[in-house]
Simulated assay, not measured.
Amino acid sequence: MAIVNLKDKTIQIKIVYYGPGRSGKTTNLEYIHNKLQQNKKQKTSKLVSIDTKGDRTLFFDFFPVSLGKINGFDLKLKLYTTPGQVKYEATRRLVLKGVDGVVFVADSLASRQDANLESFENLKSNLQYHQQALSDIQLAFQWNKQDINEQMIPLASISDMERALNSELKVKAFPSSAVSGMNVIKTVNYISKQTVKSVIQKTILSRQKLAGK
């Protein structure tokens, strides 16, 4: 849930990178953070890592210069990853609390398609735990690891992943490589803009309801 700070004149929005273990969530955030660090105009916090055995939770925040001010308020984005392994369920739920937008990082390896489905169902379940639905948040998909040589390692087709995960939702999806950076910045720019639009619309509706009472 977006937080409006009247004292600091900021609107804080939370975006979470979700998906199965080793799908590329951590690599996404590391790539984004490194790119932002290279841009001297950006105000970026340190990339914080909470290590667990075989998985990590990362987070940092920044003020996206490209999106500018919103009604005189600075926009502050907080980006998080979740651990992919099932044993870290409590951590995933904690990270999802108050989320405004999600990037679901799907693994393009053919052998990982069941893991994608399991993780996506887990996302819906954990949102319900916080009394949220997919329709309450902004969502985008990444079909990650598209840089892998299919002659070496079999990949699922993008059309198959679309049918499995996005046939009903029909939200924006990006073929990507978190390692090379292909569409990594495009994804975060897209989800940020869509989430900001959604938050503004919800704020306007809320004010209209209050005014009508």
Rank of each mutant, 00 (worst) to 15 (best):
D51M: 12
Q38W: 08
S206G: 12
A140H: 06
R207P: 02
L210Q: 14
R163M: 15
D107W: 00
S159D: 15
M1D: 11
T91Y: 03
K9H: 12
N126Q: 14
T57W: 05
V184M: 05
Q132R: 14
F63D: 07
S206R: 08
V4R: 09
R22F: 11
K145Y: 00
F63T: 14
V102H: 03
L169V: 03
T82V: 15
A115C: 09
W143S: 00
V95P: 01
I185V: 14
S192F: 02
L6A: 15
K43L: 11
S119Y: 05
Q142C: 09
K53V: 14
A110G: 02
V196K: 04
S198V: 08
N5P: 05
I158Y: 01
Y190V: 06
W143M: 00
V171G: 05
F62P: 04
Q151A: 13
Y129T: 08
L117V: 07
I185A: 12
V4M: 06
I11S: 03
V65G: 02
K40V: 12
N166A: 13
F141R: 00
L134D: 07
G212I: 10
E168H: 12
N34G: 08
K197T: 10
L36E: 08
V65M: 06
L127C: 08
E121R: 06
T52K: 12
F63L: 14
F174W: 08
I148Q: 01
L109S: 00
D100G: 08
Y18C: 07
V171D: 09
Q113P: 04
F141G: 01
K197Y: 14
K9V: 06
K14F: 06
G54Q: 10
K35Y: 13
K7T: 10
E118D: 07
D61S: 13
G19D: 03
A90W: 07
A178W: 03
N189I: 05
L77D: 03
K186W: 05
Q132C: 12
K124T: 12
D51H: 12
Q38G: 11
Q146T: 00
K97M: 10
I204A: 14
D74Y: 05
T27S: 12
N183M: 04
L155E: 00
S49W: 13
S192K: 02
R93D: 02
N189S: 14
K43T: 13
A156L: 01
V95K: 01
K170A: 08
L109R: 00
D74E: 15
L165N: 04
I153S: 01
Y129F: 15
L6V: 11
G24K: 00
F63I: 10
S119A: 11
K35T: 13
H130E: 02
S23R: 01
V171N: 09
D114V: 12
Q37C: 11
T81H: 05
Q42M: 10
P20I: 03
Q194W: 07
